[in-house]
Write a protein that binds this DNA or RNA. Structure first.
Lengths: 334, 334
DNA sequence: TTGTATGCGTTATCAT
DNA sequence: ATGATAACGCATACAA
């Protein structure tokens, strides 16, 4: 590896002079600057950012931690984050927790030892508290995305889960549905709780009683119908519509319904949170509350960088990104 | 930040002793080992990997560079890479070139300055040659994924584009189609050339003449029908089937067809390379040559790590991963 | 305008 | 079994 000393030697200057032309700092004569640059070219010199990080006490690395790389929502978010990081001149260290607290912890340790300048954190759920506290204890700035974590105050950028859920359920009610099932994520995830609340409120507003037998809680990323769906469908008065708390669950539900010969939306309506991108482009079928996933990532980076650079940034800022009801054809009047 | 010196002081030992217990190297008495570990716990010590990288001359970081984070093929590949990296104890630096050589170059520079131990490289196309040569010149190991780059010898893991294309077109011919269009990627991408060849061979084998007016070349990730599709459909003898060279193109084609009121597969059949994951789960519609995307990433990491660690690895190894014809309903007999 | 000394946090080498 | 010293590649403070 060629170092500044190598090029210093070849250019007949000191290493410091080289460092200065690299960083455009201090006063250097045009002549030596050119001379040094020429040698750098010839030797294919590339600065060692590890050494740089060590002395500068900053890495120019940001970490992105998401919970499901398979979910188009997070994929789009990652794209926004990636674009943002590039724009601000940061490198992106990538992690995927698979909605798993243990994996998340491993990544936090990795993040810490890497001394990243900040992290864009999509928590697996409420138990992410410990992991976030660890980051906080080590003074590394972060912005939380998508899901709030009780007990942690920080910059945050979330969707409006409650409102989105309400819109979705309102829409179903408007279609004449009264027996509306909820296939939800785990209740230790804030969005699942909020979507549940939105669901409940929408029902209450129309005087429709909440029926717990119509509610299933699952993990957001592993949909297994198992007996759950069975139990849902085989009750005396089965649902005429299903609200799936995210896209992955919706796909699982619809697949399982079809396997049982139940048609969507003819036999049962289905709506969900988050869009499907390519899938929706192929076949505009699923009616959804679409969130601006790309914005989550892009704005997340922006907040994070402002926090890192910014002495001016006051207390923690919360951004709520609205979701949009996109009506397609997976739900129909009863 | 707490360093080994801090904990050395608190534990009344030298920094070296601390280093040794951290790395389990050298001989340390059980007693001091316990004492040191205890202090590390108390002080929440986290090793600084930058300092470590500097002296060890290796970072334990791998870089993953893909061309389209929006494409499920690369998303799944990334997932495989991420799992693999974790398994082997590497961190993953993530990059997305957007099929853009300039962005790719930027990432290569970033990769170089990061001194990553190796890179998993999905080239944008033939002009990636320069970027790969740069990596090579700096002695950083890489394995090329998905697309070959003429002029570069290296470990590589590709799909069987020619064979997959042949299967797809054969299938269409078997359905009675004779006028089969090809919506292809750019010809400076090896897979596009190979898919073209497979297409041509399948036709030739059945004595069907190749008609250049049935062939469109596009960028793999930006499908714009524009006049292309127009021109395809408005000729005297329009195609009865379309072979799209990848999933993104297929989605674009189908969307545009539908906008014109042309039904798939009733009016025209469509097949393509690469599956759509979630979309296919929702609606098993598109007939495809599916590639084991996850394997690309997982095996890629494996080859890469073997190359990095392995003195035993001989010349460059090529892995060809087969694709599977998945027949669904986007193509039907003429 | 340019160079010298020092330190960033860690590990390897070699003593003790 | 443990410790002192140097080195990794770079940048800051200060001198010249």
């Amino acid at each position: 590896m060629v170092t500044i000393y190598d090029i210093a030697q070849m250019a007949n200057v000191s290493a410091m002079t080289v460092s200065k032309v690299i960083n455009n700092t201090g006063r250097i004569s045009e002549e030596t600057r050119r001379k040094v640059k020429k040698v750098m070219e010839e030797l294919n010199y590339i600065p060692n950012s590890n050494a740089r990080s060590l002395v500068l006490q900053q890495t120019q690395i940001l970490s992105l931690l998401i919970t499901d790389i398979t979910n188009p929502f997070y994929t789009s978010l990652a794209r926004g984050a990636e674009d943002g990081a590039k724009q601000y001149g940061y490198r992106l260290l990538f992690g995927n927790s698979d909605e798993d607290y243990a994996k998340e912890k491993d990544y936090v340790d990795m993040i810490l030892s890497t001394r990243v300048d900040g992290v864009l954190f999509a928590p697996a759920g409420d138990l992410s508290l410990k992991n976030l506290e660890k980051l906080r204890a080590h003074n590394i700035p972060f912005v939380i995305m998508d899901r709030a974590v009780p007990g942690i105050e920080s910059d945050m950028i979330c969707g409006d889960s409650k409102e989105g859920a309400r819109k979705l359920v309102d829409y179903l009610i408007g279609l004449g549905h009264r027996r509306i099932a909820l296939v939800n994520g785990s209740l230790d995830v804030s969005t699942a709780r909020l979507r549940y609340e939105g669901y409940a409120e929408a029902l209450a507003l129309q005087g429709i009683p909440l029926d717990e037998t119509l509610i299933i809680h699952q993990n957001y990323r592993d949909y297994h119908a198992d007996d759950h769906l069975e139990q849902l469908l085989e009750q005396p008065s089965p649902p005429t519509a299903i609200f799936a708390a995210n896209n992955v669950l919706a796909v699982g539900v619809i697949r399982d319904l079809r396997e049982r010969g139940i048609r969507v939306p003819e036999d049962i309506s289905v709506v969900c949170f988050d869009d499907l991108d390519l899938s929706s482009a192929l076949d505009p079928f699923l009616t959804v509350a679409a969130q601006p996933a790309y914005q989550f990532g892009a704005m997340g980076i922006q907040l994070l960088v402002e926090r890192i650079r910014g002495s001016s940034v006051p207390e923690s800022r919360k951004v709520i990104l609205p979701s949009e009801l996109v009506i397609r054809s997976s739900a129909k009047p009863i």
